[in-house]
Amino acid sequence: MLNLIRRDYILLKWQILIFIPFVLFFIFFGDHLDPAFIFLIASFYISFSTYTYDEKAETNRLLNSLPYTRKEIIASRYLGGMVHMIVAIAFTSALLFIFNKPYTVTDIAISSALFLVFASLFFPLFYVIKKGFFTPVVIISFLVISFIGPPIASFFANHVTAVTNFINNLSVPALYSGSVLVSMFIYAVSWGISVIIYERKAF
């Protein structure tokens, strides 16, 4: 299964070279951006590059013909997602550090939590959506969520005061570790859903 994660890096050897300028671009031209956002974008970069690659090639036919079970293929996706996230965060922190841009552990925690939640939404979609539609669907839903997400969140914050009060009463470390835990739980549920979808697929 490690082979499958390693595979992503063989596949992306050129794209990883683009990765560094890609992140630098956000560092320099995104002064107004929260560092958490840069971490998030960087985390997505590797996972989604492999997904779009897999969509082009008949990779699922190949992987399923090799001695891997479908469960392992999905597991490699989800574990790979976390590995890619850690790699991306390490790279980005290094770059931020080199160029003397401030960031905090909180930024990393927020971006990890957000990455896990977004990945939980998009990974199963990849196995449902028809070939060629994945990238537009992801972009559109990303935009939609970015636009309608905050108003919905503030709507809930104003109207469901019990939840807001509960969150407000939490200490800051508890809040962040709690949200990471919740997002990991969501990620695990998403993993289970992807397995169910993938087990039923034909290639």
Binding site: N3, L11, E58, L62, S65, L66, P67
Partner: peptide
């Protein structure tokens, strides 16, 4: 298979590096 299922952009060496560890 009747069509290429290997990663199109890669060369034979890289494809081998991906496939070989599976066996």
């Amino acid at each position: 298979y009747d069509s290429n299922v290997f990663f199109e952009g890669l060369n034979v060496k890289d494809i081998k590096r991906i496939v070989a560890p599976a066996y």
